[in-house]
């Protein structure tokens, strides 16, 4: 009986720790700035949606959201296609000088290097190409990061699929690439999904490169746009809270939707 009580209490305690900050964010986003700073209420006494309306009418949150969705979609989609092909080549072919293994190791090393190392040169590169503050500059950058990740993840998924199935398809007249496309790829779909989900999360949430590479609502992503609301001397707490809710909603909703794949992707690398 006492262990049961301890379990219930611990569960409630952990839930409270996780959810209280989120409650406060949502609650603040429904108050007016006056109520926030002068009355210090614990819940919105006069709930209002003004803060949300203001984000879209005065602060260009529509553009930020569009930019984020476009950039995330294209960089993940391109990286998945390129990454799956590269991972397949590394997993299945034996090239002269073990070239495929060297390429794999090289991409893994690139993944370990923290992205911040190339922040300045990527900025200079985009500056010289005229791609600062554009979708294309962000998409190119994120695609590169996602490719190294996709190759690394997908390779292990492809290795789990028996070669015999492809051989059978080729005996039946498929080309090598045809066998990859029609047999192996569909079999690797769960792995592909886990990879895509993780890439979407990381890309949608990225801030550092968005901060350096974008400057106007033309290309600013959600996290980048949210951060511009902060740091002024007179902080607009109500807008900030509403921006936090809008910024978090799509990704939390998405994560809870694909929860099972996500947990698999998060823990796979470590436990294997």
């Amino acid at each position: 009986m006492s262990t049961r009580l301890a379990r219930i209490l611990t569960t409630i305690f952990v839930l409270a720790i996780v959810l209280l900050p989120i409650y406060w964010l949502v609650s603040t986003s429904l108050k007016s700035n006056r109520e926030i700073t002068q009355e210090g209420t614990l819940y919105p006494h006069v709930p209002t949606l003004d803060n949300y309306v203001r984000l879209f009418t005065e602060k260009q949150f529509g553009s930020y959201l569009t930019n984020s969705l476009v950039v995330t979609f294209f960089s993940v989609a391109i990286a998945l296609v390129f990454g799956a092909m590269g991972a397949y080549a590394i997993a299945r072919f034996r090239l002269p000088f073990a070239a495929e293994r060297k390429v794999g190791l090289f991409l893994l090393t690139l993944r370990i290097i923290p992205p911040v190392v190339i922040l300045i040169p990527v900025y200079l590169l985009m500056l010289s190409l005229g791609l600062l503050d554009s979708w294309l500059g962000l998409i190119a950058t994120y695609t590169a990061f996602n490719v190294t990740f996709c190759v690394w993840m997908m390779e292990s998924f492809f290795r789990e699929i028996p070669v015999d199935l492809e051989e059978a398809a080729m005996v039946d007249g498929d080309s090598r690439f045809g066998a990859f496309r029609r047999i192996t790829l569909p079999l690797a779909a769960p792995g592909l999904a886990a990879t895509a989900i993780f890439a979407v999360l990381v890309t949608f949430n990225e801030f550092l490169f968005a901060l350096a590479l974008t400057a106007t609502p033309r290309a600013m992503t959600m996290p980048r746009g949210t951060a511009t609301l902060i740091g002024r001397i007179d902080t607009d707490w109500a807008s900030m809270a509403a921006a936090g809710v809008i910024g978090a909603l799509p990704i939390v909703f998405f994560a809870l939707l694909v929860q099972r794949h996500l947990v698999r992707g998060l823990t796979m690398g470590a436990v294997k």
């Binding site: 952990v14 406060w24 801030f207 949210t226 900030m240 939390v252 929860q259 998060l266």
Partner: peptide
């Protein structure tokens, strides 16, 4: 428990500023 680690880090910072 999934929520904290998937929320945009910028928003996590906003949570704690608030």
């Amino acid at each position: 428990l999934i929520i904290p680690m998937v929320i945009t880090p910028v928003v996590v910072a906003i949570l704690f500023r608030l």
